[in-house]
C-alpha cells in the first residue's frame, strides 16, 4: 500500500476515483433529493443493497485483480437460496443442514470453475458463462422436479434467523450489513496486509512471472473462485432466511452490479491493480445511485442512465489516477 498523506499521494491510490465518485454521488442526491437518504430509514435502504452486493463484489473484484472474471455468481445467489429453502423448507430438515449444503455447493461450483480455468486455456469469462447457465438449469430443473413449483417457502426461527437473516437496529437494517463489514475487514487484512495479497496482484500483473517467482498461482486461482461462488451462495442463503422464501429466478442483476461496483472502485479490468477499500466505496456508490433515485423527484427509470454515466466517468477518472501513479517519482533530494 502506498502510504502517503499528501493530496497527490492520496490521488495515486487505487480507491481515489471511487472515493471522489462517492462524494459526487452524495452531493448529487443531496441537491436533488434532500438529505432523506442519509437519515436512518434512507440509509438502511441503500446499506442493505450495498451489503448484499458488496459481499459478492469484493471476491469478484479480487478475481479481476488476479486477471480472472466470475459471472456465475448470478446463478449462485438463487442456487444458495433455493438449496436452503428446499432442504429446510420443503423437506423440513434442520436449517443448519440447509446452510451447510448451500455453502458446500458454493465451494463445489467454485472448485469446478477454478479447476476448469487452470486446466484449460479457456478464458474465465467463457468458463463461468457456461457454469452460469448450467447452474441456472440445475436450479430450475431440480426445484420444479422436487417441489413442483418455482418458489419455495421457508420458516426459520432462533439463532440461524438472528445470525443470517433478520432485521437489526430498529428493524430496517439487514444482518448482512454486519457480515459485509466483517468480510470487508477480513479482505482488507488478507489483501493489503498479509503477504498473500501481493500474490494476487502479481498474478494479475504477469501470471507467468508470478508462477516462476514461486507463487502457487493454480491454488490461488481456485481459492478465489471458491470465495466468489461461496459468497454468492451465502448471500442467496441469507436472503432466503430473511424473506422466508426462495425463487428460482433473480440474481442475474448481481453479475453486472458487482462488475460495476468493482470497476467504479478502481480495479483494472485487465488485472494487477485495485483495492478492497476501492471496491467498498464503489459498492456504496452504486447502491446510493440505485436507491437514491427514490428520494428525488426523478422518474425511477432514469437510474440506469445515471449508473452508466457514473461508470464511464469513474473509469476515465481511474485511468487518469493510474497514470499519475505510474509517472510519480519523488523530486530529487526530497525525502
Amino acid at each position: 500500500m502506498i502510504r502517503n498523506s499528501s493530496v497527490g499521494g492520496l490521488l495515486r491510490r487505487p480507491e481515489a476515483g471511487a472515493f471522489l465518485g462517492l462524494v459526487a454521488v452524495l452531493l448529487f442526491f443531496a441537491v436533488f433529493g434532500g438529505l432523506t437518504f442519509l437519515k436512518p430509514a434512507g440509509m438502511s435502504s441503500w446499506l442493505n443493497v450495498a451489503a448484499n452486493l458488496g459481499i459478492i463484489a469484493i471476491p469478484v473484484g479480487l478475481l479481476m485483480i488476479a486477471g480472472e472474471l466470475d459471472i456465475s455468481v448470478g446463478a449462485m445467489v438463487p442456487f444458495g437460496a433455493m438449496t436452503t429453502a428446499v432442504i429446510s423448507g420443503h423437506y423440513g430438515l434442520p436449517i443448519w443442514l440447509g446452510i451447510a449444503v448451500a455453502l458446500g455447493f458454493g465451494v463445489l461450483v467454485g472448485l469446478i470453475n477454478g479447476y476448469m480455468v487452470i486446466r484449460t486455456a479457456v478464458p474465465s469469462l467463457i468458463v463461468t458463462l457456461g457454469s452460469l447457465f448450467a447452474v441456472q438449469g440445475i436450479v430450475l430443473g431440480l426445484t420444479v422436479l422436487i417441489t413442483k413449483s418455482t418458489s419455495v417457502a421457508l420458516t426459520v426461527e432462533g439463532p440461524a434467523k438472528a445470525v443470517f437473516g433478520d432485521f437489526i437496529l430498529g428493524g430496517q437494517l439487514q444482518t448482512s450489513v454486519g457480515w459485509w463489514l466483517a468480510f470487508t475487514a477480513c479482505y482488507i487484512f488478507f489483501v493489503h496486509f498479509s503477504r498473500y495479497g501481493n500474490w494476487i496482484f502479481a498474478m494479475g500483473g504477469d501470471k507467468v512471472s508470478a508462477r516462476n517467482a514461486g507463487i502457487p498461482t493454480d491454488r490461488m486461482t481456485i481459492l478465489l473462485f471458491v470465495l466468489s461462488s461461496t459468497s454468492a451462495s451465502f448471500v442467496g442463503m441469507s436472503q432466503a432466511i430473511l424473506y422466508n422464501s426462495a425463487q428460482v429466478a433473480g440474481g442475474q442483476s448481481f453479475i453486472f452490479n458487482a462488475i460495476i461496483s468493482v470497476v467504479v472502485g478502481g480495479v483494472l479490468l485487465t488485472g494487477g491493480f485495485g483495492s478492497v477499500v476501492g471496491i467498498f466505496f464503489g459498492t456504496i456508490t452504486f447502491a446510493i445511485v440505485n436507491q437514491g433515485i427514490y428520494y428525488t423527484d426523478f422518474d425511477r427509470n432514469w437510474s440506469s442512465l445515471i449508473i452508466g454515466v457514473l461508470l464511464l466517468g469513474a473509469v476515465l477518472m481511474n485511468n487518469t489516477f493510474r497514470k499519475m501513479a505510474l509517472s510519480y517519482a519523488p523530486k530529487k533530494g526530497a525525502k
Partner: peptide, 29 residues
C-alpha cells in the same frame, strides 16, 4: 524485465518471498 508494472518496487522485488512481521495468523507484509 519480467516485473509487474502496477506494483511497487518493494512489492515486486519480493514477489513470492515477501518479508513479514508479527505473529501467527496476523503476520503482515
Amino acid at each position: 524485465g519480467g516485473t509487474f508494472p502496477l506494483m511497487s518496487i518493494g512489492r515486486s522485488f519480493f514477489v513470492g518471498v515477501e518479508p513479514t512481521k508479527g505473529w501467527g495468523p496476523f503476520k503482515v507484509y
